[in-house]
Design a protein around this nucleic acid. Sequence first.
DNA 1: CCATTACGCTACGACTCGTATCGAAAGCTC
DNA 2: GAGCTTTCGATACGAGTCGTAGCGTAATGG
Lengths: 233, 233
Amino acid sequence: MVGGMQIRTPACGPGRPGRPRSAAADTAILAATREALVELGWSKLTLGDVATRAGVAKTTLYRRWAGKNELVVDAVAELFGELELPDRGSLAADIEGVVLQFAAILARPEAKSGLMAAVAESTRDDALRERIRASIVDPQKDLVLEGRARAQARGELPAETDPAEAARTVDLIFDVVAGAVVHRTLVSAEPADEEWVRGFTRVLLQGLSPASAAPGPSDSPGTSDHSPGPSGD
Amino acid sequence: MVGGMQIRTPACGPGRPGRPRSAAADTAILAATREALVELGWSKLTLGDVATRAGVAKTTLYRRWAGKNELVVDAVAELFGELELPDRGSLAADIEGVVLQFAAILARPEAKSGLMAAVAESTRDDALRERIRASIVDPQKDLVLEGRARAQARGELPAETDPAEAARTVDLIFDVVAGAVVHRTLVSAEPADEEWVRGFTRVLLQGLSPASAAPGPSDSPGTSDHSPGPSGD
DNA sequence: CCATTACGCTACGACTCGTATCGAAAGCTC
DNA sequence: GAGCTTTCGATACGAGTCGTAGCGTAATGG
């Protein structure tokens, strides 16, 4: 998936003559990129350094990626490819599970520095934003869609009548969930641990309405039934 | 390690001999920084270019700021200094008002590129993160505190019993609000306009639970329901 | 007047960038 | 295997930026 997005499409046909590109070089380069992100961060990361770490020539890097932005996006996208949405039995539990996964990935230094810098650059580069969307954002949004479908099947959420309104709602929920975790991790610089995720899920499901403002933190968190359902996982 | 030292306090004493620093140079430099952010973005912004735009020497820049990161943070912080929280009569209307202001600032290209890049760099620079927190984040969080106090005075929110729990809630709400707007603007790259803000406010106040959101739990999930209060101006 | 500090200007070495070039290696077609 | 095509590694190169140093000048306080 990641290795297919290069500057051009030089060696994608099966019956193409010539020496094929080394697949091992791709994985080595992306791994070296993440390693350099951890040690140096975005601003001090240089393509020459990545090439040395990966054991390839600098020219090989420029044959496959247009620049630092694209390389880092591909390197970070592999991290978020691990995201899944195991069925935990309730909407609240599903949200808590996937948010904790997302937070765990975002807690890694290569994800923090690389993703945010790429997003910052994407504000002035439409192609880069499209690459981020296709390889990172859209797969995450699919998880929101899946979670909503499950909740509707359980009867926790009503079936939508207007598809356009439903699409807007999914986009809204996605921005709220992903944005809150990112802001908590990067701006507030505090961990999105289980306690935080529980509070966030309660707000997301019940809002700030006075009925949900339970004063006692010692009792069961929230009135939601997020009991650990023994689902076939 | 990148640029941690603060070199901005050489001339703070009143009875200090020597030529004082030009206050006009400060404003010119910060304005030139924002102008360069609009035209070039963060990655292509150079301090030499900023100095030329501001009409000062490059050495003057280095006497006042440790590097590009600190300069951009100060330049962007002035944008968010415009944020206010006018009393609109209800919690929902207050939220909508301040979120729209925040979205309007974040829609400006200098804020997008500069703020996100600075946040990305702050993941590896504690002093930079502290500067962002003090000059940008904390003032925003004060608005959340003010909004909560108003809502409590109106009876829309209950008075907190546990101050520690109340502080956690404020932090949570702040991450949710700011994170959602940032994610909507930068990652989804779609405008946080009035329609979106209305939907967001509804989710924030009432959550996704159909029991508390919609009067009719079966058919219409309150999609055409408008927010309470005079929010349409 | 004199000490002190800020300013503008120029110049400098060090570094990174992205490209060009070359010979060698690896695969496909015949 | 012969021949062609493409990739790979290594090196070199001009261009651009960085951050600092040096120097003379301007502005303020004692």
